[in-house]
Design a protein around this nucleic acid. Structure first.
Length: 762
DNA sequence: GTGCTCCATTTTTTT
DNA sequence: AATGGAGCAC
């Protein structure tokens, strides 16, 4: 990270920070009033501009800290910005309203919840909670959740919410298929169910404020007056709801400053609408646009590479990135046999760079398109004793045991939360089976009350008798714990009591497996987090702790100072920078991802994603791809990514320093080419998948005991596709054994013994 | 009502 | 390959 320090003497009456900005940055900082669009290219000092702008507003007495609202996409970005502002203006920076859209608006909702019929202790449902609710509703409506996927329906509901389409509107206007029909029915029940549970989903955190402001203009005005200046980071990734709610807030003073880069818009899958930034100037007529075009991050080679990619996209705002830095190193292309080869090669390069050029672990990032690619890299790095940090994947707070414990805690502040109640009413098993639960649910539905309220009098209900006593005990336990909490018990003690009285810890101890030990460790870690929170937070309360952690994301645990190699998705890398970057898995149907049933691939977005990845690099950049890869337990032939054909070949070299060869015009621009005509020296024409171990012709080759394997150098063989040939060399062993065969008609090829349809000719 | 085994599905990206 | 769900036996 490039840091710079300010003169530290005395009170900062007139800090000289403007002198440290270039002309464009200075304009962006000092243009304080009225709408402003900052088009910030990658690495152009955007964060510096935002922080200085806030410092400048304060210094000019334009606003008090609590009158400034700064919205970011990650907590990390907010925290970092807050730190930097603190360096400029001191502790009053703590009063700034700075955070993610979701966290800021959940705070506002907490204050105003009653006005829209919620309690301030509402639960925030994450995606899996939401899907659970949808699934339940589908089952109640007698749909087969195998055919009608809860995930699909929830996605549709979520998309609708992000576009501010209510359940009613959806019902009236947006039905064009049976799936929509089902969605419409589920959507409105889903909303009622959440409300009854006093719960909001992620989307509600953006939608409900709009509802609130529309119903209560006085409340809107209160916040309009409070937030005299509004700043929004990553504006290209805002969705319609975010656009709308900030437009409402900015309406009175029009002091809205948005920063973004249309070339880095990579979240359309969750409703981000690139037209928000493209149309900003039409939207706010008085708007000024300032571009930030000087890149301070990367070498010329890297920028040139990035530019050669992004210029293939059609829709773009005007800007030209340039840098004063030198040309630097060319980009190195790593060609690998399979993903293990890839991981090892990357790890070796890291070792080499550390040795030869003095890089440290935290100078490196390995970026991939999908989380599942991380595993092999972890293995390779571990084997080479290289420390790494994995960002993303299954987060701590999504683990079953953590969600369970949090469900108990949630019930203590919001017992009407049905999803969390159902989650733990029989966890650990306490004799309340599915039948009983369904009976209870049925009666709750009939009376239109929450399950919690009806089980207060479980004795009078029509339920399997032995279960009644168990429910009674459960209810008493929760009430007891609630009471203690209300009487001022600490969160730490409450948590401890939950773990004891629920029998959750006991069950884990009794199981006494490796698995259960890990779960216990995780729960202890949660306990630590709770005590830590309790000691640190000003107004510590269980309910605010729970709301806070439900908005914590995986990137928040990324630590740039930790001496570790960073492994993460390209999405997660946005906003970060590293001296050395490896972009791996550059293969068709991986990066760019392959089309799936529900989802067309937006090839321009994939390209922007690739652009984001490239522009993370400061000094050295590596591209990597595999010819073969295991997917779903099957070996798949992988064609090289079209992006490697698009990139300016002049800035790329192979490991041996050779220039790369490309096949121009291999792909049409519709993004639907299969890439099947791609060939490398191994000439694997087909990119279809093949079972590795089931097909008879494939199995025979690796079932041999030592010494029996007939595929030795010099042996004549016949290949199903390539015809007759002769083995000229051999490498690897066991299932990794490979041979190079010279085929009469096809030339030399390297084949994996366990997979290739080869037979010995006598 | 509980727990085990087999099977099917997954792998886009995240607040 | 790995996970979670459904179905089945106790």
């Amino acid at each position: 990270m490039k840091t710079f320090s300010l003169p530290s003497e005395g009170p900062k009456e007139r800090p000289d920070f403007l002198a440290q900005l270039n002309a464009q940055q200075k304009q962006a900082v000092t243009h304080t009033d009225g709408p402003l669009l900052i088009v910030a290219g990658a690495g152009s000092g955007k964060t510096r501009v935002l922080t200085y702008r806030i410092a400048y507003l304060l210094q000019q007495y334009k606003a008090a800290p609590e009158q400034i609202l700064a919205l970011t996409f990650t907590n990390k970005a907010a925290r970092e910005m807050k730190e930097r502002i603190k360096d400029l203006i001191g502790d009053k920076a703590g009063k700034l309203w700075m955070g993610t859209f979701h966290s800021i608006f959940s705070k506002i909702l907490r204050f105003e919840a009653e006005k829209i019929g919620f309690g301030s202790d509402f639960t925030i449902y994450d995606t899996s909670d939401s899907q659970t609710v949808v699934k339940q509703i589908l089952q109640e409506l007698n749909f087969d959740t195998k055919e009608i996927k809860p995930k699909t329906i929830h996605n549709k509901i979520s998309d609708s919410k992000n576009q501010l389409i209510t359940a009613d509107t959806f019902q009236e206007k947006f039905i064009s298929s049976t799936l929509d029909d089902i969605t419409a029915r589920v959507y409105s029940i889903y909303n009622k169910r959440l409300k009854q549970s006093n719960a909001m989903d992620f989307d509600d955190l953006l939608v409900k404020p709009i509802e609130l402001f529309q119903k209560h203009p006085d409340v809107l005005e209160k916040y309009q007056d409070r937030f005299k200046y509004i700043l929004i980071d990553e504006y290209q990734d805002t969705n319609h709801a975010q656009y709308k709610v900030t437009k409402m807030l900015a309406d009175k003073y029009q002091n809205i400053c948005v920063v973004g880069d249309d070339a880095q818009s990579i979240y359309s899958f969750r409703g981000a609408d690139i037209s928000n930034i493209l149309n900003f100037k039409e939207d706010y007529e008085e708007a000024t646009q300032v571009p930030l075009e000087q890149n301070y991050r990367s070498t010329k080679a890297i920028l040139q590479c990035a530019d050669s990619i992004i210029k293939r996209n059609t829709k773009q705002l005007d800007k030209t990135l340039w840098t004063e830095q030198g040309y630097g190193e060319r980009i190195t292309l790593l060609e690998n046999f399979d993903e293990r080869d890839e991981a090892n090669r990357v790890a070796s390069h890291i070792q080499n760079l550390k040795m030869r050029h003095g890089y440290k672990n935290n100078d490196f990032a390995i970026l991939y398109r999908t989380n599942y690619q991380s595993r092999v890299f972890e293995e390779s790095l571990r084997r080479k004793d290289l420390t790494y940090q994995l960002v993303g994947g299954l987060s701590f707070y999504q683990r079953k045991e953590i969600k369970d414990v949090l469900a108990y805690l949630t019930l203590l502040v919001n017992p009407h939360d049905e999803t969390n109640l159902l989650r733990i009413i029989n966890e650990p098993s306490r004799g309340i089976g599915n039948k009983s639960i369904q009976d209870l649910l049925g009666q709750a539905r009939d009376e239109g009350r929450s399950i919690w309220s009806i089980i207060q009098n479980v004795e009078s209900l029509d339920v399997y008798k032995p279960a009644k006593a168990r429910v009674r005990e459960f209810v008493d336990m929760i009430n007891r714990l609630r009471n203690n909490l209300e009487n001022g018990e600490t969160l730490t003690d409450t948590t401890k009591a939950v773990l004891e009285q629920s029998g959750y810890m006991k069950a884990l101890v009794e199981e006494n497996s490796q698995e259960s030990m890990m779960r216990r460790d995780n729960i202890i870690e949660l306990q630590n987090a709770i005590s830590y929170y309790e000691r640190g937070a000003k107004n510590a309360s269980l309910s605010s702790f729970l709301q806070e952690i439900s908005l914590i994301t995986d990137q928040d645990k990324f630590d740039e100072d930790k001496p570790a190699i960073t492994l993460m998705t390209v999405h997660a890398s946005k906003g970060l920078e590293f001296p050395v970057v490896f972009i791996v898995g550059l293969e068709e149907n991986l990066f760019p991802v392959g089309a799936r049933q529900n989802f067309d691939v937006d090839i321009e977005e994939e390209r922007r994603l690739f652009y984001v990845a490239i522009t993370r690099a400061e000094e050295r950049l590596y591209f990597s791809h595999c010819r073969s890869r295991f997917k779903f337990g099957e070996e798949t032939r992988q064609a090289r990514s079209r992006f490697l054909e698009e990139v300016d070949a002049g800035v790329v070299q192979t490991e041996t320093g050779a220039t790369i060869t490309q096949k121009k015009d291999r792909f049409s621009d519709d993004g639907n080419s299969s890439g099947s005509d791609y060939t490398v020296d191994y000439d694997w024409k087909e990119s279809r998948t093949k079972k590795t171990h089931r097909s008879p012709s494939a199995t025979i080759h690796y079932d041999y005991e030592d010494g029996e394997d007939p595929f030795q150098v010099g042996v004549r063989v016949e290949h199903k596709k390539f015809g007759p040939g002769k083995i000229i060399s051999r490498s690897g062993s066991g299932t990794d054994a490979k041979v190079v065969v010279f085929f009469k008609n096809r030339g030399q090829k390297k084949l994996m013994l366990r997979a290739a349809p080869l037979q010995v000719i006598d």
